[in-house]
Amino acid sequence: MKLDAPVTDGPCWSELGTSDLESAARFYTRLFGWRPERDARQEVGGYTVAHLGDAAVAGLTPLYQPSQPVAWTVSFAVRDADAAAREVTAAGGQVLSGPADVFDMGRFLVAADPGGAVFQLWQAGTFPGAGLSDAPGSLGWVELLTRSPEQAVSFYTTVFGWDVDAGRHYTRWRLGDAEFGGMVTMDDKFPPEVPAHWLPYFATEDVDGTTGAATRAGGDALMVPTTVPDGPRIAVLRDPQGAMFGVYRAGEED
């Protein structure tokens, strides 16, 4: 069983911060068939919501600070952003920005776990998060890559109450019976300059076809299409501006 809608303490949204908003929108539209809609309000700086049909599935934003990297960020739903900020700090993490209101849509903050992986927390107002999950073109899995796995387990189980299934090669995160993500320990194969991070995976009907479309559109395949033993077919890609993300074949993730 997997999460197929936003729930408290689970992933609810994914957001791309990019150096070229228009080019990024074209790239992901080509891959996933997204319909991007740019918010016309000047104060949001061009924030764009990608849709599949009527469902919002992801956000695309300009870089708001010179130090902000081009990257995807994963958001987790919370009941109370201010209380969650205190829990993050008490568990050894850092609050990097917020909590702050986004009109009447909700309240958010940006945080980092003790290993440095950045994520967001979202207290829903009128906007609950992604309207479609675990379907082609939408977010369906989130993966933490970290050099401090034991510290990460302690932090996330304390802050969110996640359950942990620690296998021989891979650790999975659960809320009750529903799996929603995993954890990879970063070893010597990862360059030291690559920080700990959360990696979103989007569902697709054809991993090989999506990988080919990404490379033809100027992206790269960091991990070529691979069938995971007892798991799905996946690939890890990088868009033309440098943001990393994963794809998996819908319906084969369990």
Rank of each mutant, 00 (worst) to 15 (best):
K2S: 02
D9W: 02
D9C: 05
G10L: 05
P11A: 15
W13N: 02
S14A: 14
L16V: 12
T18G: 13
S19E: 12
A24Y: 13
F27M: 15
F32V: 08
G33V: 00
W34F: 05
P36H: 11
E37M: 07
V44N: 11
V49G: 10
A50Q: 13
D54Q: 11
G59K: 07
T61P: 02
P62S: 08
Q65T: 10
P66H: 05
Q68N: 02
V70R: 10
T73L: 13
T73N: 14
V74S: 14
F76L: 12
A81R: 04
D82T: 08
A83P: 00
V95E: 06
V95A: 04
L96H: 06
A100P: 00
F108W: 13
A111S: 13
G115F: 09
F119T: 00
F119C: 01
L121V: 11
W122D: 00
Q123S: 10
A124T: 04
G129Y: 14
A130R: 11
S133A: 14
D134F: 10
A135Q: 15
P136H: 14
P136S: 12
W141M: 07
V142W: 06
V142K: 03
L145I: 06
T146Y: 10
T146H: 09
T146G: 02
A152C: 01
V153C: 03
F155T: 01
F155Q: 03
Y156V: 02
T157H: 02
T157F: 04
V159C: 11
F160K: 05
W162T: 03
D163P: 01
D165Q: 10
Y170P: 03
T171E: 04
L175E: 01
G176I: 04
D177C: 00
A178W: 04
F180D: 02
G181W: 09
M183A: 01
M183C: 00
V184E: 11
M186F: 10
D187M: 07
D187A: 12
F190K: 06
P191F: 12
V194C: 04
V194G: 03
P195F: 06
P195N: 09
H197N: 05
H197G: 01
W198A: 07
L199K: 03
P200F: 05
P200C: 05
Y201Q: 02
A203P: 00
T204N: 11
D206A: 03
D206G: 06
D206Q: 05
V207S: 06
D208C: 02
T211L: 01
A213R: 14
A213C: 01
A213H: 03
A221V: 04
V224R: 15
V224S: 13
P225A: 08
T227W: 04
P229A: 09
P232E: 06
R233C: 03
I234K: 11
A235K: 08
A235D: 05
R238K: 15
P240I: 15
P240G: 15
G242V: 15
A243D: 13
M244T: 15
V247A: 08
V247L: 07
V247Y: 08
R249H: 15
A250C: 13
G251N: 13
E252F: 08
E253K: 12
D254G: 14
